[in-house]
Nucleic acid binder design. Structure first.
Lengths: 368, 368
DNA sequence: GTAATGAATCAAAGCGCTTAGATATTTCCT
DNA sequence: AGGAAATATCTAAGCGCTTTGATTCATTAC
């Protein structure tokens, strides 16, 4: 395994200069066909694989993009707590896993929001022949990891709240960065977001107009600017709907607290007519708690989410929500990054994508 | 965005040599504390981010591992075809997505086998401070992509049947490679597999002994050596069980054909007592077809899978299966790769991990 | 036949970093 | 105080590739 062959070896073997070898791979049309054959043959025989490090150094570009995915397992926000009981646990169950392969609870049963966006990033990178580096934190050494990634790629995609602002700014000084949402936080980098306001407005109006509900409770504000925008739209709809409505209530519940909040409401018996949740994940938690409490959705209370993650389709009752074009967002991030590489001085972009309401069972729409 | 600062800039600013700058980052203990501060301050001010290309070139190691994930969307094998109808499609449904954000059918509703292994790889890489490059094919230019990745990393993890043997061999000449399963195919690289035989044996015996079934049909052979091993164990159990059993039937159905096979069986009315499937994905397809045909699982026929993917927990009836420690396998792949880097000449390893039977509803075990 | 033109190839200068080995500085003894 | 030993820093030689500008070779035109 003696340190693979290099251009020099190939060049020697083919009886040409290293420049010709390089050209053969990077600009084949500049090399006479016969020579090209020669070189390729030599390369093949030697098992030559060009070193990306050397290329990157010489060219000043690595040809890779980066994705910083913070580690959800270490994320305190808890999971969807979806359906699917623990499976058959009768006395026959040998459901004992090999040690060290824990179950993750229900957390990772379904791909989450970020997973779906990430998939878009992956697909687009592959389509464009870009390598993709996915980095994860490790909240501890986030900074170090981030800097490491930044040093390896031509551009970086980051998820909301996964990177401290200063760190982001630092990276952005060196390579293009595109962030999902949070457009207020750092105006110097590109952003891709969705039209939170329209989505929240549409779904809220649906509950009011179609289902005639008047006592709506917003769950899950305060976590991100996305959530805030959704809440704001929600409030404005309530206001517009006028006096007919009950006093709106919207606890700015942080995620871990969502279950607690709903549990408390159940106990007090002060159930609203609908829980309008800031995210699907919140909604799943809410539905879970309601199920625990023996409260029927949507008969006793409606629940809506926001995002359109897979779990919402599968869970029963299925979740009425606002779908974001997640994969598309990922693809666009890649596009923006690549674009920015060619036009470093264009002013920062903020793309807002449209969303669509998806009516399912949890609001009372579908044949339950 | 004038090409970020380099060691030279930092060195100048801090009034030291570039060597000292390098040491400050790579071997801080070799640098006097006061100097270190100086350098770090300079770096900070300048927004210095070390170039991984240069480092990789100088060190002969990139510090990244690679994962070659073939592109499932382009994979003809079809998806789980899980539960979860199309959602509320009443006349109110505005379920129209932004163009370009197709739904993928049910294909990606749940993380699949490879996803879960991949997650293990990711987690372990992050834990160990390794960067992870995920490459996708694009069946068209697989070779090119693969070679590109190979040039960027210190080691490569590949999934079964995603890379042609010759290509694999070529890569393996240059960097360590570890493959999931398929240990017969290329004996020169490391492998991690599970104990397919035990798993298949255990689940088959369960059906026979506990549920008293005698007419078992194996579905989904011939796709991989994993499947073959499972089939073999299945057959051997049938044989051992002796004369009491019906003639076993095991069409070597290729994946796309599974649905067809089962459909045909339903129409002919020649239902076995159980479908023993080579993979969970096969089993999901089978259950889907059975549901279509109005056949009750497990009352009329039992179904079992193999793998332990998430969908099997969520689907109704939940799927009895053999669980592989998928995340663990991913982690181990990373371990093997890193290990191999230090010991290039150790003989190839083949790790077989234990599996565990997970009894759920589809075999008739749980409270349906 | 030769000058002019274009095509194919090459020589050589980096790209930004790491790391021996050389050199300078400090510390510790006697 | 003087010198050996230990520390800290520096000098310089690459790592394997890309790419510019120079050189060589093959054509074409007169």
């Amino acid at each position: 395994m003696a340190k693979g062959p290099t251009v020099y070896h190939v060049a020697e073997r083919a009886g040409v200069s290293i420049a010709t070898v390089s050209f053969t791979f990077r600009q084949p049309e500049k090399v006479k066909a016969s020579t090209r054959e020669l070189v390729l043959a030599a390369a093949e025989e030697l098992g030559y694989v060009p070193s990306a490090s050397a290329r990157g150094l010489a060219r000043g570009r690595t040809g890779a993009l980066g994705l910083f995915a913070y580690d959800y397992l270490l994320d305190p926000s808890g999971g969807p707590g979806g359906p699917g009981g623990p499976g058959g646990s009768g006395d026959l169950s040998q459901d004992v896993d090999a040690p060290g392969d824990r179950e993750d609870g229900n957390l990772r049963l379904f791909p989450l929001y970020v997973d779906e966006v990430q998939r878009g990033v992956e697909l687009e990178c592959w389509r464009r022949g870009q390598a993709l580096l996915v980095g994860g934190g490790n909240p501890a050494n986030n900074e170090a990891v981030l800097s490491d990634i930044a040093g390896r790629v031509d551009g970086l995609a980051v998820f909301p709240r996964s990177v401290p602002v200063e760190a982001l700014a630092r990276i952005a000084r060196r390579i293009p960065v595109v962030e999902v949402s949070e457009s207020q936080r750092n105006r110097s980098v590109d952003h891709v977001t969705v039209d939170n306001a329209s989505g929240a407005r549409a779904i809220t109006e649906h509950l009011i107009r179609v289902h005639g509900l008047t006592d709506l409770l917003f769950i899950g504000a305060g976590q991100s600017s996305d959530n805030d925008e959704r809440l704001e739209a929600f409030q404005s709809v309530l206001k517009d709907a006028g006096a007919a409505l009950h006093e709106p209530r919207y606890p700015a519940g942080s995620e871990p607290a969502v279950a607690e909040i709903v549990r408390a409401i159940c106990q007090q018996g002060t159930l609203p007519q609908a829980f309008v949740c800031a995210t699907d994940q919140d909604a799943l938690v809410v539905m879970d708690v309601l199920a625990e409490a023996g409260i029927d959705v949507p008969k006793q209370v409606a629940v809506t989410g926001f995002d359109g993650i897979a779990a919402g389709r599968v869970i029963r009752p299925s979740l009425t929500t606002v779908r974001q074009p997640m994969e598309r967002m990922g693809r666009i991030m890649v596009e923006l990054l690549l674009d920015r590489l060619d036009h470093p001085d264009k002013p920062p972009v903020e793309l807002r994508l449209p969303v669509s309401v998806v009516l399912r069972e949890s609001c009372g729409c579908s044949p339950a």
